[in-house]
């Protein structure tokens, strides 16, 4: 072993890199299993037919989503295919309007506006926007807000109007509901009244 010889370190660099890449490949295969739709951490799209909560779980020492009984979105249960179509279009809204260049999702994106991971569960819908928009349900208030956010500002930093059509807004709401049911290892912590660590 001659540590002055560059070829010694070259061998080291190549083998270290290969080992790390192989480990990464195995971990990625396993992760894909867990995070594909219907995997252990990511529910099927038709989870939007159910009530979703976020509660502190002592055994995991983290808040976890809790899927409850039926609570169909917009009062009408959807099939798995319908749910998938909604999600596809909701995701395209999020990309085409560059939502994540103001907001974060799972904490990734930009920091000008609040995190959307659990936006569906945000108490502000009941407390602020349902009265403001005059809508009777959370999802209707969300649709109204997303279509005309500049009409319902809550403070100096308001959301601009991104010209969402009604269908686009409904798909986005569906997407946000599904998003809130993903198990994110407890991020965000202490979310709202339901996620508080007792």
């Amino acid at each position: 072993m001659d540590i002055e010889d560059p070829s010694f370190w070259r061998a080291g660099a190549i083998s270290t890199t290969l080992v790390m890449l192989i480990v990464l490949a195995f971990l990625s295969i396993d992760s894909m299993r867990v995070i594909s739709v219907g995997g252990a951490n990511v529910p099927k799209y038709d989870v939007i037919n159910h009530r979703i909560g976020y509660e502190f779980d002592w055994s995991r020492n983290a808040s976890v989503p809790v899927i409850g009984g039926p609570e169909p979105l917009f009062g009408k249960a959807v099939t798995e295919a319908e749910a998938t179509a909604l999600m596809e279009s909701g995701k395209l809204v999020i990309q085409s309007r560059a939502c994540m260049d103001c907001h974060t999702i799972f904490g990734n994106g930009a920091y000008y506006a609040p995190d959307l991971t659990k936006a569906w569960l945000d108490p502000a819908w009941q407390q602020i926007w349902m009265p403001m928009t005059g809508k009777a349900t959370r999802e209707d208030a969300m649709v109204e807000f997303l279509m005309h956010p500049d009409k319902y500002p809550t403070w100096t930093r308001a959301m601009p109007n991104l010209q969402l059509t009604e269908d686009e807004a409904r798909a986005t709401v569906a997407y946000l509901k599904w998003l809130s049911a993903i198990d994110t290892n407890g991020f965000p912590a202490n979310f709202g009244p339901s996620g508080q660590q007792p």
Partner: peptide, 20 residues
């Protein structure tokens, strides 16, 4: 690369990925 490749994991804490 020895530390950086798997250092990728610090972005996989909260995006739905497994606990490990």
């Amino acid at each position: 690369l020895g530390a950086g490749i798997l250092g990728l994991g610090h972005h996989y804490f909260w995006i739905g990925t497994p606990q490990y």
